[in-house]
């Protein structure tokens, strides 16, 4: 079969739908960028951005969301890496049930999950809304649940690509205990997978609205909505800032994964 070169002719149909898709992708982003620069009549400038960056509530929201995102990533990794590792090693038959559980946040819409969380944890015996600290615990739990499908899948794919069982047995035969196997062998080999899950986790938390809105915490999401109700140009600037954050994290992931890909290639060719 390899002797046949595929030479598909590019049809008008293809170009038409391709261009339309590209327009759909980029026009709103271009529009947002253009709009955000037009705060001052007649000139292009960064006034809208300056206003946002001078707004203490933006920084409060930003700090809060970043803090929450980092804690979420740590908690999430601390839950999923050992759990999935254990699953691979001891109970591979648990995979179907794990897959169903971790897909649930896709089935239960965010608004419903928050509804349930609030009604469950806003009264005894499990009250968690009495102080901001306790509310933040609830926030983290919610974020971990919401980002669970991404984190699970990322770590799962990572574990699948390395032969967990053999690595563990090799390390154990060299005298490692469980903790050292995980810390010295498994996690270093999973760096990229964990990083991938973490960055998606980060992007999710930074853009999340519902939890913070209904638990009345000063995250970036509710700040955006409030700004949108009263201002015209600043929300566009904020949207661009938000996109940049997302792209930055995903670009970072792309960079790291392509670098490790290159390193692998080098090992093979040398």
């Amino acid at each position: 079969m390899d002797e046949i070169m595929s030479r598909k002719r590019t049809s008008f149909f293809t170009i038409f739908w391709g261009i339309l898709a590209l327009l759909y992708f980029f026009l709103p982003i271009y529009g947002t960028l253009d709009f955000s620069l037009r705060m001052e009549r007649g000139i292009l400038g960064f006034k809208a951005y300056k206003i946002i960056f001078a707004d203490p509530r933006f920084w409060e929201g930003f700090r809060y969301s970043v803090t929450m995102a980092v804690i979420t990533i740590i908690v999430s990794a601390a839950i999923f890496v050992p759990t999935i590792y254990w699953m691979y090693l001891k109970v591979p038959q648990a995979r179907p049930i794990m897959e169903i559980i971790t897909i649930l946040p896709f089935v239960i819409p965010g608004i419903i999950l928050v509804f349930g969380l609030i009604r469950t944890f806003s009264r005894p015996p499990l009250q968690l809304t009495t102080s901001t600290f306790k509310t933040d615990i609830l926030m983290i739990a919610g974020y971990v649940i919401i980002s669970m499908p991404y984190m699970f899948r990322a770590v799962d794919v990572g574990m699948r690509s390395i032969d967990v069982r053999t690595l563990t047995e090799a390390a154990q035969s060299l005298g490692s205990n469980w903790f050292h196997v995980l810390a010295d062998v498994i996690i270093p080999n999973l760096r990229l997978a964990i990083l991938g899950g973490s960055l998606i986790c980060f992007a999710t938390v930074m853009g999340e609205l519902i939890l913070a809105d209904f638990l009345v915490r000063p995250a970036l999401g509710p700040y955006m909505v409030r700004l949108g109700l009263t201002k015209a140009y600043e929300p566009a600037a904020l949207a661009i800032i938000s996109y940049s954050l997302t792209w930055f994290s995903l670009g970072l992931l792309q960079f790291f994964s392509s670098r490790s890909e290159r390193q692998k290639q080098q090992v093979i060719t040398t």
């Binding site: 026009l27 253009d34 998606i200 999710t204 999401g221 929300p235 904020l238 949207a239 995903l250």
Partner: peptide, 24 residues
């Protein structure tokens, strides 16, 4: 990227682009 876009920024983008005073 776009499949996970959603949310508030997307709404702002559409307002800035094709809202009453949008660029387009």
């Amino acid at each position: 990227l776009a499949a996970n876009f959603g949310g508030v920024p997307l709404a702002f983008s559409f307002i800035a682009t094709i809202g009453q005073t949008g660029i387009i």
